[in-house]
Design a protein around this nucleic acid. Structure first.
Lengths: 116, 116
DNA sequence: GAACTGTTCTAGTATTTATAGAACAGTTCT
DNA sequence: AGAACTGTTCTATAAATACTAGAACAGTTC
């Protein structure tokens, strides 16, 4: 389980951590029961603050993707499976959007709105 | 052409304005050559600052969705058509994500990442 | 030329992001 | 029982972003 972050990116670090977990879930690299590395470990290896990592973890918890308890760490829930299932559909949509010359932000925004 | 904004939302106002235009483009309510209302009009009717509206318009310009010149206003470009074309695919993906219980933020994040 | 349009500039406030350190309270393992 | 781990909560600070505000500028349209 490896979490990557680009310090030069304009997207917040905590959001990048969330995105990294999402990507692993979509690729099937994370299954129910798997444990995320401890927030202190991630903070140490990424060179960021503990609170920044915990904020990301808490968002994942809010999404229902992980179950968190002190002492045990952050454990992936059954909610990852839908993500893996949608992986192909998402890739297909993105591929089509790319051929149409649509910007990434535009497509992501459209998806988010359509959800409402 | 009506732009809506929710002051209570946690997403920035300028992003909501961008999203509102995206939604109209996806629904086919905006075609190439159509003009967005002037930034001053939007600012006045929404009760927000002129600069906030202009920031949204400038992002739409960066996405290639509108062509802006002083005196003429913001005019929709041919780049809206891909959005209208993808509308069905996006709706289908969102519908499937909903039945799987996936959060809106999670899906939007997945799409954005997959683009990279 | 008048009235419109976006552009640019400075400036201030509020919110968000990230950092820092400390103490707390459960869980796991020895 | 105790040590070592985990997330949780608290206060505090600095930096960046979002929003507002007002003014002046420069093209476009009528």
């Amino acid at each position: 389980m490896l979490i990557r972050v680009d310090p030069a990116s304009d997207t917040p670090i905590f959001a990048q951590i969330v995105a990294s977990v999402h990507a692993d879930a979509a690729a099937g690299r994370l299954g129910p029961g798997d444990r995320l590395p401890s927030a202190r470990d991630v903070a140490g290896s990424l060179g960021v603050n503990l609170h920044t990592v915990l904020r990301a973890y808490q968002q994942l918890r809010d999404e229902g993707l992980v179950d968190m308890r002190r002492g045990r760490g952050a454990v992936i829930t059954d909610a990852v499976e839908p993500i893996a299932h949608l992986h192909h559909d998402i890739a297909a949509l993105v591929a089509r959007a790319r051929t149409l010359g649509l910007a990434a932000d535009t497509l992501a925004a459209l998806v988010k709105e359509t959800y409402r």
